[in-house]
Structures are given as structure tokens and as C-alpha cells.
Amino acid sequence: MTAAVGGWTALQHLCDLDGWTASDLEGLLDTAESMAEILRRPIPRVPALRGRTVLLLFYEASTRTRHSFELACKALGADSLSLAAATSSAAKGESLLDTLRTARTLGADAVAMRHPDSGAAALAAAAGLLPVINAGDGAHAHPTQALADLFAVRRRLGRLADLRLTIVGDVLHSRVARSAAQGFRACGALVTLCGPPPLVPPHAGPALGARVEHDLARAVTGADVVMALRVQRERQEQGLVPGAADYRAGWGLDAQRLQSLCPQALVLHPGPVNRGVELSPEVLDLPQAVVGEQVTAGVAVRMAVLYRILESEGAEGA
């Protein structure tokens, strides 16, 4: 949800990357570059958002996303307020909005939220209570993760246009894959989706403007970037994926495979990694693994998003 104001894109909410253009994305990544400079300082803190409070509302487990939002708030001088996940399953929509009302009363200026239901962020944004940053909603979107991936890749390769990105894994249930495919495609990358057919149905391709290729070797040959997705154990229990050994045999990435199929490709993983399933342990130590940089990139892009949303909010601060 963006509106152009005098050449500057004011950001009200960030629910997904729908409608984001290459120049919107590149502009945000430029802001994130400035934020990354702050993070390299001995005292990584600026007063840009002093006096602002960001509610971190996580209805689902998260380590790196929540912590990187916390660090992003700290670095910009904002306060963060973590609300313990309200786990009541009844009337989720209502309780979510009530929680936001409470947070607003307590002085929150924005909310970064993660929710198991797809569309929860959009619902919260539509309520108009607070600016909403989606930190992952169901299988829908995880825009700040996609921004972090774009940032890390642009850093390494110097560009995003015309890159070939292959996403390997449980595309069907992955908000990371959806947002990454959207973001990279908007920036001019060619996206290929790969994985076991039940998890990468043919209709996933056109919906994300991507090519579907179930054979790993064909999917990653010539790729500039390979993104491995986490294989969720509960999907195996649902019978959608073969066991870990079979998954590894068909779609697992190890150093040898990467070396023979796409020796130059960067390797991304949104974490946490199931070592020995989607990625072999040695892959994380290869120079082409960007997994560690993805984490630092996450703080920089979340700073950029918070700044863009909050600097245009409210009129005090002069």
C-alpha cells in the first residue's frame, strides 16, 4: 500500500510486495544501505525515531525476524514493545484487532506482526488502527524477508535485473517463496520454482510469474541464486513430502551438487536450516552461502521499512 508523494513513496503499511516496482524496491534498498552503514558503527544508534514505539506482535514462533525488528527499533532510537502471543484460537480476527486497539491505547505507533493465518496483516491494516508491517502471515507473504534477500543479493552481485533465481522446496506453503518470487521478479529476475510436485503445483508458476521445474538439476543449472526453503516436518506428517532421506536425494543441496550444477550461484536460506535435509551442513560454510548476510541484511531493511513508515506518521517531533 503505497502512495507517491513528490517523488518519494510514502509507505503506510507493508503487507506484501503486491504492486511494488523495481524502482520502489531499489529505493528502499538504497535506504537500507544507509542503515547498514549505521549498523557498522561502534555505537549503532541514531535518534531518527526517538519517542516512537513499535509493537512486536508475534502469534507464531520466530527468532531472527523478531530479534531483527527489535535491533532495527533500537538502532533507530525507537522503543519496541513485545506482546506475548495471544494463543486463543477462538475469534482470531476479533482478538487481533482488540489487541491492536489496546496497543494503540498504550502508545504504539506501528505494529510488526506475525500471524498463522494468511491475510491477517491485511485485515489489521484495513482496520486502520496502526501502520502494519507484515512479519509473516500464514502462507501468504513475508515481505521484509524478501527485502533482506534482495538486499543481500544486490550487495553480492551488484544488480538484480536479469538474475536467474531458483527457489527449491515447499513453495506451496511458503510465504518466503511467495514474497521472494514477487520481489525478485519485480526487479527483473527470472524465477524458477522447484521441489516435490505436491509442494510445487503447476499453477504456482503463473501465479508468481515463475517457471516450474520439478527436476532439481534442470532447475538450478545456470542459476545465479538458489534459495532453499525449510522443509517443515508437519508437511511430512501430512504425507505431502517424502521422508527426509528421499527429500535430500531429490531436492537437497550439497556442495557436490552445487559444484557440478551451478558453481557460481549464491545460496540463500531463510532459516532456520534443517541441516542435512534441504541443505547439507558444509554448504553453509561455502563462500557462496549468503545465509549469514541475510540475517544482518534483515536488520538493515527492517530499519528502512520502519523509518519509511514512521517518519511520515504523526506531526510531532519538531
Binding site: V5, G6, W8, A10, G27, D30, T31, E33, S34, M35, E37, I38, V46, P47, A48, L76, A304, Y307, E311, S312, E313, G314, A315, E316, G317, A318
Partner: peptide
């Protein structure tokens, strides 16, 4: 990021390095 007049000024400068 150090300005105290961001929200009162009309222009929104891009954050530079």
C-alpha cells in the same frame, strides 16, 4: 536521521550515506 524537523517539513529527503 538526526533532523528534528522531518515531520514538519514538506520535502522528504532520501536518506544518504
Amino acid at each position: 536521521l538526526y533532523r528534528d524537523d522531518l515531520t514538519t517539513s514538506h520535502e522528504r529527503p532520501q536518506v544518504g550515506r
